[in-house]
């Protein structure tokens, strides 16, 4: 939000005129961990899109491709990485518990503000 509105600027009755205007509110600032792509290539299965609570998986729907993360709204919960079947496969092949920021993964959760 840039500036608070005065009473003259608010619609009569205080109604909200536009549906879905919450996109203007950026919840990305809540994030402690950031999703980034790792080495394992994306198979565009859209599982992350299906389970993201914040509609923050960007997709190129026409070409059926996963296109990235909406970091203005992503709260960094890490659900995308937890449902990613490529991540599951990488962990299975490694045969050990991997850190959430392991570079071999498809979707990694990297600590916000940490330099690599």
């Amino acid at each position: 939000m840039t500036q608070l509105k005065g009473w003259r600027d608010i619609p009569i009755g205080g109604v909200i005129l536009e549906g879905g205007n919450a996109v203007e509110y950026r919840t990305g600032g809540w994030r402690a961990f950031r999703p980034v792509f790792g080495q394992a290539p994306c198979i565009h299965c859209f599982q992350c899109w299906l389970f993201c609570p914040d509609s923050s998986i960007l997709v190129d729907a026409e070409n059926e491709k996963m296109a990235g993360f909406d970091l203005d709204h992503c709260k960094g919960c890490g659900i995308c990485a937890s449902v990613c079947p490529v991540n599951a496969k990488v962990i299975r092949q490694a045969g050990e518990k991997l850190n959430r920021d392991d570079p071999r993964l498809c979707i990694r959760m990297v600590e916000e503000g940490k330099m690599e």
Binding site: G20, N21, A22, V23, E24, Y25, R26, T27, W30, R31, F51, C52, P53, D54, S55, S56, D70, D72, H73, K75, G76, C77, G78, I79
Partner: peptide, 15 residues
Amino acid sequence: LSPGHRLCAGCAAPI
């Protein structure tokens, strides 16, 4: 349902 709602990170309700 648009992003930018203020449910906690990891909440299942918006899913």
